[in-house]
Structure formats: structure tokens, C-alpha cells
Design a protein around this nucleic acid. Structure first.
Lengths: 152, 152
DNA sequence: TTTACTTCCTACAGCGACTGGAGAAGCAAG
DNA sequence: CTTGCTTCTCCAGTCGCTGTAGGAAGTAAA
């Protein structure tokens, strides 16, 4: 597993070519060695690092946390308490988002179930226009529910 | 309720000054009339519109959908089926995100519960390094879980 | 050897929904 | 008249990419 092209590394790690370069620029990966003509070269360790990053991203960790986790991984013998606390913090935020979304779901369910009449009396429109029609206090709920920095 | 400054409108609607201008630029609000010196003026109807937008945002509707909902609100006598279907679609996406986050939570819970030893055998680090240690297939879970376009 | 195709390089714009700041001008109170 | 608040326009930054432009280099077949 020596001297893979960036394309090969992308295929093996599941991280796109552009994204690999992006990670390098962000300091998540060391600068790759280059061929004479300037092309990046990767080995098995680099692919492992990429897979690690992808996995952590799939689980919703922000890049900043991933950088910390990678640093911890590279230092065997250290306590794993920091990694554990990072993961716990992330779990807590996931739980907060689930709670927020569940509240949101309740509110949306209540406002749907329109009786099919015209917009003048539409439940959906009315509910949006008048906060007083709402059951709970959902101020900024969507904000809590959001994953930082992901859009589809 | 006539001739409010943008600051007053912001206070009454709960939408920040900058955000009001942003909404105007996006076409969610009609261009506000101006004073001789070029300052925007608002009335009760404008504040209501702003509150409507804020409420819909709190519930996680994207601006594009909100534009549609505002248009529907302005046309009494039309069927409310479009508004209803918008809300239903949004509810479905909220439910999908809850499901994704719940799966994520399970995975995170499994990998936490580190026994406090060193990073060489840390559950968190190991789980991230080796996808095979995972229970479910969580590829791109965080992506589904995300609210489009919100970052804190 | 020429052509054609693919991959690679850098650099930058765009997504969504804002937020915050610069620099200039307006306005009210002391 | 000065101080301090608000407003104006314009622009950069957030987050984690993705996609494109425009070019160079590598590979394979004709």
C-alpha cells in the first residue's frame, strides 16, 4: 500500500478527491509528499486517517473535534478521557437536537390536519401568523435542532 | 402603528435589523418605503409579516417555503392544500431527521463507556478507526440529520 | 507520434441563512 | 456643538464541503 494517487486514496477511503485536498488545507492531514510533477502521494496510513475522518463525520463530529481526536489517536499511552468527553459532549448535543425536533414535530402535527377549506381559515397559515395558537414555546427550536454547517 | 423605524420593527417582530434587510433583499418582504433621508419605514402589516417569517423559521421552514406560504396567506379564497402539503413535507423531513439522530445516538452511546484506560485501547478512538465495530450502517447519517443551512 | 481520454493541479465561487463589521451619514438630547 | 445612538450600504465570514474553470501531466490506443 505505497504511493497511491489521490484518486486511489479517495476510492479506498470513501472521501472525495476535492475533500481530501480540503482536509489537507485545514490541517487535518499532513501535507502529502509529491511526485516530481507535483502530484500528491498517499499510503495505507493516510487512507486509514481519511477513513477515520469520514467515519467521524458520518457520526456528525465537527472537523475541529475530529482534529482533536486524530491528535489523541496519534498519542498512545495518554488517557482517553479527553476523547471520551468529546464523544459525550457530542452525544449530548445529538440528544438536545432530538428533543428539539420532537417538539417541532408535535407543533407541526398540530397545525396540519387542515379541513380543506380556503386559505382564509387554513390551520397552517393561521398557526404561523399567530404564535398564540401554539402549544409550546418553540423559540429557536430549529436552531438547536441544526447540525452546524451541513446543507444538502 | 404607522411609520416605525427598522429598529422598532425589529424589536416588535423579534427579527434582527440586519435580518430584516436580508429578507427584503431576498424578496420575502416588499421594498419598504423610505424617508427623505433614505431610512426604511414599517407599519403593523409589515411587523406581522416579519413575525410570520420568524415563526416559520423557528419551526425550521426554509426561506423558499416561507415565501410560498406568505404568498398563500396573501390570497384568501384559494385552497389551502398547497400550504398543507408544504407543512406535511416539512414534517416528513423532521421525522427523517429524528430517525437519523436516534440511530446516531445509539452508535455514540455504544462507543462511549470507555473503561478509562489509555488511548491505545480507547473505545471511542477504536470505533472511529474501524467501521466494522459499528452496529448499524450509519453512512451519511449526519447529513440526513442536518437542517439545511443553519450554523450556530 | 499523434490523438484522445482521464486524472491531476490550483484557485475560487456557491450553498443556506444569516451575522457582524467598516465607514459614512442622520437624528435627538444636553 | 458635541456626544452617542441609529441607520445606511456593502462586504467578509460562518460550516463543510461541492463544483467548476483553466491548465498541465499521465496513460492508452491508432
Amino acid at each position: 500500500m505505497r504511493d497511491l494517487t489521490i484518486g486511489e486514496a479517495a476510492r479506498r477511503s470513501g472521501v472525495k478527491v476535492n475533500t481530501i485536498r480540503f482536509y489537507e488545507g485545514r490541517g487535518l492531514l499532513p501535507e502529502a509528499p509529491r511526485t516530481d510533477s507535483g502530484r500528491r502521494l498517499y499510503d495505507g496510513a493516510a487512507v486509514g486517517r481519511l477513513a477515520f475522518i469520514r467515519h467521524a463525520r458520518d457520526l456528525g463530529f465537527p472537523l475541529e473535534d475530529i482534529a482533536d481526536l486524530l491528535a489523541l489517536q496519534g498519542q498512545p499511552g495518554t488517557s482517553c478521557a479527553p476523547a471520551d468527553s468529546l464523544a459525550r459532549r457530542h452525544l449530548a448535543s445529538v440528544e438536545a437536537r432530538i428533543a428539539a425536533l420532537t417538539a417541532l414535530k408535535g407543533e407541526l402535527t398540530r397545525m396540519i390536519a387542515c379541513d380543506g377549506s380556503d386559505t382564509a381559515h387554513c390551520r397552517v397559515i393561521e398557526s404561523l401568523a399567530d404564535h398564540a395558537l401554539c402549544a409550546g414555546d418553540h423559540a429557536r427550536l430549529a436552531e438547536v435542532a441544526a447540525v452546524p454547517g451541513v446543507s444538502d
